[in-house]
Nucleic acid binder design. Structure first.
Lengths: 137, 137
DNA sequence: TGTTAAATTGTAATAAGTACAAATTAGTAA
DNA sequence: TTACTAATTTGTACTTATTACAATTTAACA
């Protein structure tokens, strides 16, 4: 848990129980959970946790660049620790999100349009390996 | 309007008035409107148009690859004609979405993970040229 | 022109996310 | 340690994008 305290300290944000457990949860669950999944899972051992707090904490963590939100599904946000550039694959059948360890070779070119670039997301959609195997397509 | 009839015919989908006006609208409005913007704008000259129809029609057009939905904003879908690969820039300040005429050089590599790839989206976020100019940052 | 399956329409429902005010707590300073 | 204050958490109520569904209408074809 010291690890997470350190991260919050480094970012000059108050060390609170919800922030710590959410950060720990995201460190241990790299499956890109939604706010609701995080809330439901953590609620068991943190009965006083409020859904609003989960949303607030996620927003704070994101603003400090500690985590990122992923808009790939189009219906709800998924969350991911910010650990090096990678892309995401979304399965239209089962909804799972996979990491794709590629980085974008175009990032420099993107600055040529006059916009200030803060984030780059590569989203790929289709049918995942598992669903193909199950013949669910 | 014949142009849009042709597109629907080529895709073997029924030629209906809502589909035609929505397709025309998207052809003339490349600013990535939301379903609600499309509905509101078209409602004036098509009073019988229903919001559900807009959603249904957009879904049909997307399923046939005629248009694509863009999940960049995270809060609602935006729609775009499917015309050649390009990326999108989202301004966190004003919400505008800009086209970025780059294609992804990584597409072949993406097939190496065993998933069936159907769509590739490049999303860039930050502060747009206009907002930077206005000093709104 | 009649038939039928598909599409449209309006209303009601769902679900993700936000607003807000009251209660609590982290961090600081005495 | 204690007291203070601003920030955070909490619960409830609300908003908003999207979907479900049943009744009506319509496109396509015989």
């Amino acid at each position: 848990m010291e690890k997470y305290v350190k991260i919050l300290k480094e970012n000059n944000i108050k060390i609170t129980s919800p922030r710590l457990v959410i950060l720990k949860y995201l460190s241990e669950n790299l499956s890109h959970p939604t706010a609701d999944q995080i809330y439901t899972d953590l609620k068991t051992n943190n009965p006083s946790l409020s859904k609003t707090t989960v949303y607030n904490s996620l927003e704070t963590l994101e603003q400090h660049g500690i985590i990122q939100s992923i808009t790939i599904s189009g219906s709800e946000l998924h969350y991911d620790l910010n650990r090096g550039m990678h892309h995401h694959f979304y399965c239209k059948k089962c909804g799972r999100i996979y990491d794709i360890p590629l980085s974008c070779p175009n990032i420099e070119k993107m600055s040529n349009y006059g916009h200030k670039i803060e984030e780059v997301h590569g989203y790929i959609k289709g049918i995942c390996k598992e669903c193909l195997k199950k013949g669910r397509i």
